[in-house]
Design a protein around this nucleic acid. Sequence first.
DNA 1: ATGAAAGCGCTAACAT
DNA 2: ATGTTAGCGCTTTCAT
Lengths: 332, 332
Amino acid sequence: MRDVARLAGVSQSTVSRVLSRSTSPIQISQDTVQKVLDAVDKLGYRPNLTARSLRGQKTNMIAIMIADISNPMYHSIVRTVQAIARERDYDVLIANTDHVYENELHFCEAIIRRPVDGVLMVPNHLSNDEIEQLIHITDIPVVVLAWPSYYPRVDAVYGDDLKATYDAVRWLVESKGHRRVGFIGVSRTLPPGERRRTGFDRAMTDAGLAVPPDYIQEGDFSIDSGQRAMRALLQLAQPPTAVFVCNDLMAIGAIDAAKDLNCRVPEDVAVIGFDNIPEATIIRPRLTTIAQYPVEMGQQMAHAVFDRIEGLSNGTRQVFEIPCRLIEREST
Amino acid sequence: MRDVARLAGVSQSTVSRVLSRSTSPIQISQDTVQKVLDAVDKLGYRPNLTARSLRGQKTNMIAIMIADISNPMYHSIVRTVQAIARERDYDVLIANTDHVYENELHFCEAIIRRPVDGVLMVPNHLSNDEIEQLIHITDIPVVVLAWPSYYPRVDAVYGDDLKATYDAVRWLVESKGHRRVGFIGVSRTLPPGERRRTGFDRAMTDAGLAVPPDYIQEGDFSIDSGQRAMRALLQLAQPPTAVFVCNDLMAIGAIDAAKDLNCRVPEDVAVIGFDNIPEATIIRPRLTTIAQYPVEMGQQMAHAVFDRIEGLSNGTRQVFEIPCRLIEREST
DNA sequence: ATGAAAGCGCTAACAT
DNA sequence: ATGTTAGCGCTTTCAT
């Protein structure tokens, strides 16, 4: 920048003014602007954003922490967020936690030590205290993709998966006539795991149906774990006739395992998933699933942070529900 | 940091020394160290990495540019790179280009303006000049996942997909007896598109087999585009009996389209993919494909940059071939 | 309309 | 072994 100033025959602060003309009220002569711009061109000069960040308390960067880079759900979210960020000339730092608590902590630590202007995250283990602390230390707007109750003072975008699960299970029982319904979930220590399980339990209770302990299997979101869980279910003396699976990846694995055991889907066992990832329409039978709307989620999250970053939204907390919807295909 | 110094009753530079004790030759009294550490603890102080970067010319950050966040191939690469980076206390900036040239350029621009210590990338459009320029401006080590010939002075990790394609097509013809072989590729402006197409053409020529122009279809790596391409192929008056598909995602779409048209795979049409993503073993028939080894690729790439960052490797360019391998399953 | 100067939070000579 | 000082490349008062 000094070089540019020298070449243009102006002071370094003038160069700075020309280059960050966003701060409007100051007038610069047309002539000077041109000289500076020419010099910038000639030298191929680019401002150093690290320095700008240090000085300006504005990094032009936001961070997004997702839970699983292999889950297509998050791809749409990330893509959407990136697109919105790009429009505003922000870079996006992506972190992937693989649902591991230590990684979530590490992310917070990284943000504290290398501040950004805003944070989006899908916290699975982080306590409210930990998030509060992050905000307190960094004073950065945070928006979570999570049920708002967990993080009471943070903007939240969420899908009502408890209700969606409940409704889907009741539908399985009432419209589809199933009485033996199994469940492939994930650890209840994970908020979605807990909620979907609760939705399931309530639906079964309200339907007056008992669920043998063996009918509840636990996976880890992966195709593999879905296969294992389904295998366990089908090898029971009296296997379920329908299985609610907590995400599509596991549901895909479950259907695969069923086929392997010569079990027809949906005739012998019906399967319903969660997420509505693109693959759900590719496998056969096409997967019945509960759709989430990742593009909308990404949009809401991004707009929520940027509104705060730009001071458009003040203190009041924002909460957005993006409803889920059952999509019936061939697996039920 | 000043606060810590004050609380510990030492100078600010002493705090700095204690905290970045990596620079070994300097001795600090045990007592001082303790005082500083206590103060750090008490204040919950964390160094600001932005400032450290600005001053030290070391950011403790590397960037990775991948071509498609939806392609599971890249997930393993990213995960592996992240793991290795984490061990060394580096953060990873992930960028996704969706195979778009402008996004690749934007990435370079972003790196120039916000320097990192090393860059990994999967360039699809970037010319050698553009990469040279990036290196010239930033003086950062760059390693690419690409054929070394494109970027002659940059460390490269690559799979020999031309040969793998050639071999697979010959195998289709000689061992499997196919004489009408179709091809679903991607734009030849993309290096892998060009190479795989070349491999295909050579194999067919060497086998003495003609390829009608209609047998060559072009997609964009996505499941959808694979479906469309396969539909076009199967609606030909004389459709191919085997189709080589340039990636698994499109191959999955292709198989789906074949089923839709009541075409049996592999009896009526054999399909072979490329990548060996996890889904390849999930769909039915299980996909015959050419495996790439993303974990190894990620490891080599990461080690190559870190070796340079840490000065372990000097000027001489490194090149690693990670061979591909045909995995025969049920779709051929 | 422009320049001079201070300082963002840190590291690394250079002193002592 | 520790303190003093000079920047890293920028933005932003404060002067003029």
